[in-house]
């Protein structure tokens, strides 16, 4: 779980740096999905990992639940990145919306599987 938390932290930092650099070249146009890109791995990744590390009473999840949940966080983060790029450029894509939906489904499925384990 500690390793997972470190990975999520690294991804959050990368996302923060990426959005800062991207915003520098976006001619003053901003998108909350780009600005807050780092929040997805930080809130949905680091926080749960931290909770499992700190609260010993919590039963650690098994690999299937972790994989599904992580897939959801990854899909939501990439979807947010795409939405940010599209909004700054002034366009939109149905594929980004599908990815956001898939991410939410994965995330929910991961939580449900954890509860059922």
């Amino acid at each position: 779980m500690k390793k997972g938390m470190l990975i999520y932290l690294a991804v959050s930092l990368f996302c923060l740096l990426f959005s800062l650099v991207y915003n520098q070249f976006s001619h003053g146009v901003h998108s909350p999905f780009m600005t807050w890109l780092f929040a997805w791995p930080l809130v949905l990744g680091c926080l749960p990992c931290g909770a499992f590390l700190l609260l010993r009473a919590l039963r650690p999840p098994k690999r299937l639940a972790v994989n599904i949940y992580n897939s959801g966080v990854a899909a939501l983060t990439v979807s947010s990145l795409l939405r940010g790029i599209f909004e700054i450029a002034g366009t939109a894509s149905v594929y980004q919306q599908w990815l956001m939906t898939a991410g939410l489904i994965f995330l929910t499925a991961g939580i449900i599987i954890y509860i059922w384990e």
Partner: peptide, 25 residues
């Protein structure tokens, strides 16, 4: 293979992202 899913999913996600960008631009 502990990272099989992570690698496979990462590749699929990257491909999907690239396709979305190509489709849009």
């Amino acid at each position: 293979y502990p990272y099989f899913w992570a690698v496979l999913y990462g590749l699929l996600l990257t491909g999907y992202g690239v396709f979305s960008l190509l489709d849009a631009f």
